[in-house]
Every structure is written in C-alpha cells, then in structure tokens.
Nucleic acid binder design. Structure first.
Length: 507
RNA sequence: GCUCCCGUAGUCUAGUGGUCAAGGAUAGAGGCCUCUCGAGCCUCUGACGCGGGUUCAAAUCCCGCCGGGAGCACCA
C-alpha cells in the first residue's frame, strides 16, 4: 500500500463559480512545481492502493496529486491495486477493491485504467531468470532469524555464491512446492556491506500459503512490493512515480533492479508524510469496527473515509484544495482538520441555506406574545437574497430554546433572533417585552408549532438530539444546510417516522 | 545505533542571491452587521532553528551544530 500519507495551473473547473456580491472569496490559484522531464501528453502516473479498506483522508494526497498532474500534463493515470498476498497482519480484502473504486468516483477522480498485481504474476516471474543469470539475484534458504543477523553484521550467506544452476533449481523448487513458506526466498544481490543496513540483499520473492481474495491459491510464490513495482513501472510505461517519502528506500531497490535489467525507470518523486490532527486514521481499526458493526459502515465519520467525508457534506473540491495546498514539500506535516473545514466552508457558505436547530431543547411559553404575530419571514442567507426566504409560524408563542441558552439567560432580557425580545424569570417563566431589535443577546429558537425532532450525527459517532424548524420536515438526502450557530450539516436518508437525520460536517 | 529526509509566524505554505523592512491561507485578538456568542465583512498580532563562512548583497549557496521525521519485515 503506498497511498498512505498525500496544483495544477488552474483549479478544477468543477469549483463553483464565485457569485457576484455576497462577499464570496475567490480561491487563491495554486500551482504545483513542474515535474522533471515531463512532456505534455506523455506523462503516465499511477496510484497503488493496498485493498484493505476504503480510501480515506490519509490517501488523499496520493489521489489528488496524481490526478492534478495527470490533468496538468494531459497524461494518463492508472490505479494499480497493490494486492500481492500481504502478510498475517496485512491482508487484502475482496470488498476493498470496489470500495476504492467507488471512493475515487465519489471524489471525481476517474483513472484511465485499473490494474491488479494479482493478475500480473507471470510478468513478475518472467523477469527473474535474467537476474539469476547475471548474478544479481539468488535463492537463500537461511531462516529468517539468521538472515536478519547476517544483515546486521554484513555477513553474506553461504548460498549467495552457489552456482547458477543451483539457484535455478531452487527457484523451480519454490514454485513447485519443494519448499515450505519461510524455507526459501529470492534475494537481490546488492552489497552485504552497504552502508544502509536496510539495503543489504533485500528479499524479492517469498513463499506464502495464504489464500488470495482474487486468485485464491493459484500462486504460492509472491513478489515483494519493490520488485512488483519495478516490473510494473516498466511494463505500464510509467513516466513519473509520485509517492510518500516513506517509500524512499524502495527507490533504491527499483533503481537497482532497473539497472540489473539494463533499463531506465521513471522519475521518482516524493512528498512528506501528512497526518491530520483530530483524525486518528487507522485502516485496520476501521476495517475491524466496520465488520463488527461498531461503526456504521464505511460511511461512519470515525473512519475519515472519502465516503464519510462526503456524507458530512465535505465536497471533493475541498479535499482537493486541502491536500494540493501542501504541494510536493518533503517536510513532514501535521495539519488540523480545521484547515479542511475552512476550504469546505468557502464552498458551502455562499450556497447553503440557514435553518434553525436547537440542541437539548426546552419548551418556553412566552406570556403576552403578540396575537397578531402569526408568522415571520426569514432570509435563507444573511447576505445572499437569491437564496430566498421562508415563512415560519410562530403563533401562540411557544418555542424551543437550547437548555444552555435557557440557563445562561435566566433572569435576563434577550432577543429571540429575528423575532421579539423576551425576558426569562428566575423560575423559568418567559414573558414578552418588546418587538424592536436592540443590542441585547440574541438567542436561537425553534417555534414549537410544527417543529420536527432532529438527530444530528457527530464526528465521534455520537448523536445530538434536538428540535429543528418545521421546514426540515420534508428534507431529502444530500441537502446541505447551515444550522445557525451550530455548523454545516448534510441530510442523511430519511425514514417516514422518527427524527430527521443529519450529519454534522463542521462549524 | 546505522542510512536517508526535513527545518519560514500556533499550523500549512510562497519564496531558488538583490524587487523580502518576507506574500497567502488558517488559527488567535479587536471591530462591523435592523439581528448567526459558531457564518460573513474589516483591521491587527505573528516567522526565515542556532553558529560560522562565501558575497557588494543570503530565507535563498557552503560547513558545523541543534531539533523533527522515516526506514532498518520472508508488510504495504
């Protein structure tokens, strides 16, 4: 898996055109540095996710940087499922292939092709014999522990210099089942005294009996990531590899292999590691919680998956701007999720209608509420008239206020925002005082008449229950609102009865 | 420990020897708004890790130090 941890000449045209007036900010134009040796129309890029779960915010850098350069150079972009057999702790999962495909669709990234490493095993095998012949690879039957120790001390293993024929036969033996898992591996011959201990005769192939989710037990000898990439990057004509700098050592491996094959590989370019503060992202934890039902599927906000962000009303363009703003810097960074929200807010604020919602509601009956005040017309947006208005019935003077507001304003006069001024006595009774606006605290309210119960899913998976204004009764999935003084929300699918369901996006 | 990478405001980023008395974003502070204590608008605060060089001139080049990160798996 190499998608973990992730401006073109212009921003994508999908960004909503800034409307006139309304104080809409023009987003800054972002530019990515040019790629070395990149020719217009001839750039071929690839993104290689390990199919163990949905794509999430940690994958975003790989997705959007590749896509941005693909567009900038009018090139190709492939998804290569990095689905070799994995290990005990890291296994590919069948469902993940489709999840990843859907996630890419969700964020409007459409690859030119999909490839599966598990379909390309013969290609990997075919490239190996020449390495035996040129003495660049060998079969090693050391136990893992011996191998580690030798690597540490820079000691070559006894088999390293056996004759070519022995290695050929041993390789056949690996394929045919003569060796059990762990009993034989293929290693590259670099230099056992290489200053970087991590680079001393690394493993190219190993035996695994795991059943692969796509190809079952058809193969028992599997390549390591670096070898598979070294082959695919040549076979697929990749011109530039963009990946996180955690894979820098893999560069050395790929380059060693290309040079052994007498070929020139693509340019290798890295970005620093990205972590998002406030977002503890663990694909394996998410997988476990999704499977066990603790999480509400991959759209549970706690996964930080693309789908879950979408469900929260976070637009793909916001994620794109967010990750592209980091550029190709090699510095490791930790960014607060707040930055992502700020990007999304620029997109949503100008187009999102306001609605009233109060959490933890208390009923307040206002004594002396004016009889002639039957309804009030409220703007859907404080500055953008084109978003229209709505009428809210207030007859009878019964309101829901947030418990917090009730407590805070007990014994004081305050204004029901956009409506009238009232006073709350110490024992909780409310009475009308006056109508004109004046500089006193303003409190959010929901008219009890017609109010609908609302359940708001939070980022931590909990729910806040409250009451929303009557116009929310007919809400449909996907509608976006700003609950005033609460934040931006997106409507979940609704059920005929029960509360209206929303997902909290961000303030 | 070894190898590699990185170091501009709280955070992210622009900057590739002069136009940088360092630009933008975000966060923070203050203000505005016939009405969002959480949106919007305006203003303000705030940075080149340290020490040596090179140069007429350095955030930009060189060396050292300090600090941070990654790799050292028969995972990806």
């Amino acid at each position: 898996m190499e998608e973990l941890r992730g401006i073109l000449a212009t921003l994508p045209p999908s960004r909503p055109a800034p409307a006139e007036g309304g104080g809409v900010k023009t987003p800054p134009r972002l530019e990515l540095p040019a790629l070395p040796n990149a020719e217009q129309g001839k750039v071929v890029l690839r993104f290689a996710p390990f199919p163990s779960g949905a794509l999430h915010l940690g994958s975003a850098r790989g997705v959007f940087l590749n896509d941005a350069y693909r567009k900038r150079y009018d090139g190709k972009f492939y998804v290569v499922y990095d689905d070799t057999v994995g290990s005990e702790e890291k296994r590919p999962f069948l469902e993940a292939y489709d999840l990843i495909r859907q996630d890419l669709e969700t964020v409007d990234v459409v690859p030119d092709a999909y490839y599966y490493k598990s379909d390309r095993m013969e290609l990997y095998y075919r490239r190996l014999p020449p390495l035996f012949e040129s003495g660049k690879a060998y079969v090693c039957t050391c136990p893992a522990e011996t191998l580690r120790e030798n690597r540490r001390t820079g000691t070559a293993c006894a088999e390293r210099d056996r004759p070519l024929e022995w290695h050929r036969e041993a390789w056949e033996g690996m394929l045919s089942g003569k060796y059990a898992p762990g009993e034989a591996i293929v290693r590259i011959k670099t230099d056992m005294a290489h200053p970087n201990p991590a680079f001393r005769d690394r493993v190219l192939f190993r035996i695994s009996d795991f059943e692969h989710p796509r190809v079952g037990k058809r193969y028992r000898v599997w390549p390591m990531l670096e070898y598979a990439f070294a082959v695919d990057d040549l076979e697929l004509g990749i011109t530039h590899v963009l990946r996180g700098k955690d894979l820098m050592m893999e560069d050395m491996m790929e380059q060693a292999l290309w040079s052994a094959w007498g070929r020139q590989g693509p340019e290798l370019i890295h970005w620093g590691l990205l972590s998002v503060r406030d977002a503890k992202i663990s694909k394996s934890k998410s997988y476990a919680e999704v499977m066990s039902g603790v999480y509400d599927g991959w759209s549970d906000p706690r996964t930080w998956s693309f789908t879950s962000l979408f469900r929260r009303g976070i637009r793909p363009e916001a994620i794109r701007s967010f990750v592209l703003s980091f550029g190709m810097s090699l510095a490791d960074i930790e960014v607060p999720a707040e930055s992502l929200y700020a990007e999304n807010r620029k997109l949503l604020d100008p187009v999102t209608p306001r609605r009233a919602f109060v959490a933890d509601p208390r009923v307040v009956a206002v004594e002396g509420f004016p009889d002639d005040l039957a309804s009030v017309s409220l703007a859907n947006h404080p500055t953008r008239e084109e978003l229209g208005r709505r009428d809210v019935r207030v007859q009878g003077g019964r309101f829901y206020l947030a418990a917090r507001d009730v407590d805070q304003h007990r014994g004081k006069e305050f204004r029901l925002k956009d409506l009238v001024n009232i006073e709350l006595t110490d024992d909780g009774h409310a009475r009308f005082t006056s109508r004109p606006n004046k500089p006193i605290p303003r409190v959010q309210w929901v008219a009890a008449d017609g109010a609908v119960p609302v359940s708001l899913l939070q980022v931590d998976g909990s729910r806040v229950e409250g009451m929303g204004e009557g116009s929310l009764a007919s809400v449909k999935e996907g509608e976006l609102f700003q609950f005033e003084r609460v934040g931006f929300v997106r409507a979940d699918p609704q059920t005929p009865d029960g509360p209206r369901r929303f997902v909290f996006g961000h303030p």
